[in-house]
Design a protein around this nucleic acid. Structure first.
Length: 548
RNA sequence: GCGCCUGUAGCUCAGUUGGAUAGAGCGUCGGUCUACGAAACCGAAGGUCACAGGUUCGAAUCCUGUCAGGCGCGCCA
């Protein structure tokens, strides 16, 4: 197996070497950047190395840049660099030669289908817990955003080499379960829903079903358990349809039945972080930066949600996960500090715990925001949205914004199967390429990208160069998106790839292109683009259709 | 009151571990189908990057303060 050199890394290290040479081998401060300049006239890649060196050398940045350029020209040679210019305050701008581009294509081709996302240096065993919606009602669109985000994040983390599991925490214990059972039982008996009960139409449907199964409405335990089971069946079905599969469904009840809550409390006690006051058992979370201490066992002897959650996270750590990622709704962000404190209190490194806060999704139709409240039953079910706009559009619109910002999902836009809909833009580029490749295959057999991409000596068009540079960004984008827990970056990137492809397609005839090896080279570029788009969409859990 | 988050084009948002003339989609206006998919492309209009200071060669990005909005501040989950 041949390992093609990374063409970007090659340039980067040349810049570093040149910078080092100017300092007579004495190490400099920050690594110089190598980035795409804002405008094409400013070259293919550009470095701030001269500006960084100017201060320690005590020279004018532009003079340093001039020397750096000379050094770089010599190092890289005409086979890589066409010319180097100094611009602005002292940027060194590289204009690359076609042979470099052809080597870059060969490098992409040799990376194969995966296009070689850069692995992290220290892979971790990570548990990502997400959705974890209370099993008291169908999944709504907010849960759908959690699902899309969590799932895509896991795909990203796996792509860069982490070992990751998806987990759904089922809150099947506690007060809201009692209210849920009481609400179902009330419906079964034809009574009013109690105060603080669940009022959705699905509660009545559950009641009918449970009654038909012969369960006694006065047996709240049985009603609640069966209700949860039925809700979870539905939630599983919705998630399955959405393409989100969990490795593990973790039951809160099991924590109690296995004695893990007691064990976790004992551990906290042993570490000296608990105390009794006002009949309750408290956790001294203020030791670890929380603004007040928190109750673990109420005065009435009932454990709090926190007690179970401490046990749950203790369990995660015991299972050997090196990093615990919790995706939480914005309304739970106040909870993070105490959980952080609790993990520290158990004696674990709290840095291993990472809470990601998800903000809301608003469904917008005719300029109106639909409200979502599970208690009142007035919410938009994820299933409804999937019926309306489909899985791909739903995932796209839930992922294309940072998790840290509210999403307004305009269903009228998402519903359109037309050129206004940004979802299809990327998919269309993929389908268009597939169509070209089908035609090429029909005429001359399967298209291959391996050999031959380097041989043509016809000059590349500017849009071909743009596209190649864009494709080269893929591994870095994936790594960045994973590190920053930011799947939406992949949406942005995929859109850019599609735009660059359309530009290339506009300017460059592919099939029947004139010139020695030009058609072959362009077909290879089209195929590499197709792989990149499919790779990007795959990380988002969105299909890459051959036809639309 | 305290804490966290947010404030970028008409709308919804990218860009935020400091880089050059701040971008995309939608919306508006105008062009392009006799070559490989017009679900596309090209062009125009549209900005005090909330405001005020500061740090420096350079700030949407970092620091301080102010204003505005969201969320949280339970022996609920």
């Amino acid at each position: 197996m041949t390992v093609a050199t990374d063409p970007i890394a090659e340039l980067r290290s040349a810049v570093s070497r040149a910078a080092l040479a100017l300092r007579d081998g004495e190490p400099t401060g920050p690594e110089p950047t190598l980035e795409r300049p804002p405008k094409a006239e400013l070259g293919d890649y550009s470095s701030n190395a001269a500006m960084l060196l100017a201060a320690p050398l005590g020279e004018n940045p532009r003079d340093v840049a001039a020397r750096l350029s000379a050094e770089l020209s010599e190092q890289l040679g005409p086979d890589t660099v066409d010319r180097i210019e100094v611009a602005g305050p002292g940027f060194v701008n590289l204009f690359l030669a076609d042979p470099w581009y052809r080597r870059a294509m060969a490098s992409l081709a040799s990376a194969g289908e995966t296009l070689g996302p850069i692995p992290v240096t220290s892979p971790e065993r990570i548990l990502v817990e997400f959705v974890s919606a209370n099993p008291t009602g169908p999944l709504h669109v907010g849960g759908g955003r959690h699902a899309a985000y969590g799932d895509s994040l896991v795909r990203l983390l796996e792509a860069v080499g982490h070992e990751v599991q998806r987990e759904f925490y089922v809150n099947d214990a506690g007060g809201q379960i009692g209210r849920f059972a009481a609400s179902i039982a009330a419906r079964m008996r034809g009574e009013e829903i109690p105060e603080d009960g669940y009022e959705g139409a699905y509660v009545a449907a559950l009641g009918e079903r449970i009654a038909a199964e012969g369960i006694d409405p006065t047996d709240l335990e049985a009603v609640g358990s069966r209700g949860i089971e039925l809700i979870l069946e539905g939630v599983r079905g919705t998630l399955d349809r959405f393409g989100v599969r969990f490795d593990n469904w973790f039951s809160e009840r099991d924590l109690y039945s296995r004695g893990e809550v007691d064990a976790a409390l004992a551990q906290l006690d042993q570490q000296g972080h608990t105390y009794r006051s006002d009949e309750a058992l408290w956790l001294r979370t203020t030791t670890f930066g929380d603004d007040k201490d928190r109750v673990l066992i109420r005065a009435n002897g009932e454990p709090t949600y926190l007690a179970a959650d401490v046990a749950y996270h203790w369990d995660k750590l015991e299972r050997g996960f090196e990093r615990l990622v919790d995706i939480l709704g914005a309304d739970h962000h106040g909870y993070v500090a105490r959980l952080h404190a609790a993990i520290a209190g158990l004696g674990a490194d709290p840095e291993r715990f990472e809470a990601l806060i998800m903000r809301l999704v608003h469904i917008v139709e005719s300029g109106e925001r639909a409200q979502m409240s599970k208690r009142s039953g007035d919410f938009v079910a994820l299933d409804e949205l999937l019926d309306d706009i489909g899985v791909d559009a739903t995932r796209w619109f839930m992922l294309w914004r940072s998790h840290d910002t509210t999403v307004d999902l305009d269903v009228e836009l998402a519903r359109r199967q037309s050129n206004d809909n940004p979802v299809y833009y990327v998919q269309y580029a993929h389908a268009r390429i597939a169509s070209i490749l089908r035609k090429a295959a029909a005429e001359a057999g399967e298209v291959a990208v391996g050999a031959g991409v380097e041989t043509s000596d016809t000059a590349l068009e500017p849009t071909e160069r743009e596209l190649i540079k864009r494709l080269l960004e893929f591994p870095g984008e994936v790594r960045e998106a994973a590190e920053r827990r930011a799947p939406h970056r992949i949406c942005t990137y995929a859109t850019a790839v599609a735009a660059d492809f359309h530009g290339f397609y506009r300017d460059c005839q592919v099939l029947g292109a004139e010139g020695e090896g030009v058609e072959r080279s362009r077909l290879a570029l089209a195929l590499l683009t197709k792989r990149t788009i499919a790779g990007g969409l795959g990380l988002l859990g969105i299909s890459a259709p051959e036809r639309m």
